[in-house]
């Protein structure tokens, strides 16, 4: 399974369409295979990230807030979306791999990493 996470620093980015970094990784069963890739997206829109997810053959998108248009579009393209996730992206990824990540979850590590510098 190929997973895309919208990230900001160490956390899942608050907003899908405002994200400037994405992480793409592949999993097999409950294991992460290979080295995750982090891609910088200067001035990218939600449409661009949707396009990238399709191009990269992504099966699961993990993100924060996402507009319904983008959500429905990804769903229509048979891409699963777990949205509204708050917390460190590594935790989100680990939960996703074990199939425990739920939409709208506030992960235990959320907010403890101190100031979110921008």
């Amino acid at each position: 399974m190929k997973i895309l996470i919208t990230i900001h620093k160490d956390e899942v980015a608050p907003r899908f369409d405002q994200t400037s970094e994405i992480l793409i990784t592949e999993t097999e069963g409950e294991k992460i295979t290979g080295e995750p890739r982090i891609i910088l997206l200067p001035g990218t829109s939600g449409e661009d990230i949707c396009g990238l997810a399709i191009k990269e053959n992504i099966s699961l998108v993990i993100c924060g807030g996402i507009e319904d248009t983008h959500y429905q579009y990804l769903k229509w393209k048979k891409i699963k979306v777990v949205d509204g996730v708050i917390g460190p992206y590594q935790q989100a990824l680990n939960s996703a791999v074990t199939n425990h990540l739920k939409p709208g979850v506030i992960l235990p590590g959320a907010g403890i990493s101190g100031e979110q510098s921008r």
Partner: peptide
């Protein structure tokens, strides 16, 4: 109750970031 202690931006999910970080 569930959002106390969470980063504010994760709660409001605004586009303020693209406006030069006025919160900062």
């Amino acid at each position: 109750e569930e959002v106390v202690g969470v980063h504010g931006e994760n709660v409001i999910r605004s586009n303020l970031l693209s406006k030069g970080d006025p919160v900062g």
